[in-house]
Simulated scan of single mutants.
Amino acid sequence: MTSQYHPPRKHSVEIAGHKTSISLEPLFWEILRTAAAREGVPVNALVARIDVERIASPTPPGLASAIRLWLVAWLARQMG
């Protein structure tokens, strides 16, 4: 596991045929890969799903923030 205090790293993802880059701390990238594997989808598909939920929100945050929030909620569901 990477140090939780490592600065963000930028990775490219594809959402609905559109490439974009997202900056997340390595710890969040690790959790995102784990969540995608457990959900049985590729990381790009999970990011696309989070993006759809984000856009539907009354006050949509940025994509990186939405991913972090989704991951915290996902981890909470895993623990509960």
Rank of each mutant, 00 (worst) to 15 (best):
R77I: 03
T34D: 10
L63N: 02
G80M: 01
E53K: 10
T59C: 09
Q4G: 11
R68S: 12
G62A: 07
K19D: 05
I67G: 07
E53S: 10
E53L: 14
P42N: 04
R33E: 15
L75I: 06
R9Q: 15
S23L: 05
L69V: 10
L32D: 09
I15E: 01
A35F: 04
T20M: 03
A66W: 02
E30R: 08
Q78R: 10
P60A: 12
S65V: 06
V43N: 02
H6M: 09
T20D: 00
R54M: 14
V41P: 03
S23H: 05
Q4N: 12
I22V: 15
V52L: 05
A56W: 01
I15Q: 00
F28V: 07
P26V: 07
H6L: 14
P60Y: 12
I67K: 06
S65E: 10
I55C: 04
F28C: 06
W29N: 04
T20V: 08
M1S: 14
L69S: 11
I22M: 08
K10M: 05
N44S: 10
T34E: 13
S21N: 11
P8D: 12
L71A: 07
L75F: 05
T59Y: 08
R49D: 14
V13D: 04
Q78T: 00
A35V: 03
I55K: 13
R68V: 13
D51A: 09
S3I: 06
G62H: 03
M79D: 06
I31G: 00
R54V: 08
P61R: 12
S65Q: 11
L63G: 01
E53V: 05
K10Q: 07
F28H: 14
S3L: 14
I15M: 03
E39A: 08
L32Y: 12
L63E: 01
L75R: 10
E25R: 15
A56D: 13
R33Q: 15
